[in-house]
């Protein structure tokens, strides 16, 4: 008997996050083209979240297939963010917090600073642009996103995806 969907899913890890980000991005594009605008933005927010989380754990030395546990996520939020002077917003879905954590960690660690001047600012600004119109709580609401909001979200997520190898 074939395994069910959840049983076929591998553990949360850097590699899976990056691959899943590409899949969910394409899902979002399909939704947007069908007029399901809020659903598209809803998925793209998670794409950004996966990219930022994967990039952070890659930066701190996780191997591509090393499992990222809930404890790892909470340590990032409660310990590492605190060490770097970042006020964490809400729970584990904050794009602004993950982007600041990622950029601050790389900035604070010798040898990990971004080689391109201003790149870190762009990572945070693109994440923030998305966070202005995205929250995991979108699913609880019936509102339809405006076209310009879809365009703005898509521009931000495509920037993050295009730059994912360098994040």
């Amino acid at each position: 008997m074939p395994k069910q969907l959840l049983d076929r899913c591998g553990p949360d890890c850097v590699q899976n996050f990056f691959q899943a980000a590409s899949e969910r991005y394409r899902d979002g594009v399909s939704l947007a083209s069908e007029g399901r605008r809020t659903a598209a933005i809803y998925l793209w927010g998670y794409v950004a979240e996966m990219l930022l989380k994967a990039s952070f754990f890659r930066a701190i030395g996780f191997s591509p297939t090393q499992q990222i546990t809930l404890v790892d996520l909470r340590n990032a939020k409660n310990l590492e963010a605190n060490r770097l002077g970042i006020t964490w917003v809400g729970q584990l879905h904050s794009l602004m917090s993950w982007s600041q954590l990622l950029v601050s960690y790389r900035t604070a660690t010798p040898g990990l600073a971004y080689p391109i001047t201003g790149f870190g600012n762009e990572v945070v600004n693109q994440s923030r642009q998305l966070e202005r119109i995205w929250s995991e709580t979108l699913r609880y609401h019936k509102n339809v996103a405006y076209l310009h909001e879809v365009a703005r979200a898509r521009q931000a997520i495509e920037w993050l995806l295009a730059n994912a190898p360098a994040l």
Binding site: L84, G85, S104, T107, A108, T109, P110, A113, G118, N121, E122, V124, N125, R128, Q129
Partner: peptide, 25 residues
């Protein structure tokens, strides 16, 4: 950041209101 001597700057100011994040930066 002590190990790299890099600086993170945060400016809270209502006058940013009409500017995009990139323009503020």
């Amino acid at each position: 950041f002590p190990k790299t001597n890099a600086i993170r700057v945060q400016v809270i100011w209502d006058k940013w209101d009409a500017l995009t994040d990139t323009e503020r930066t």
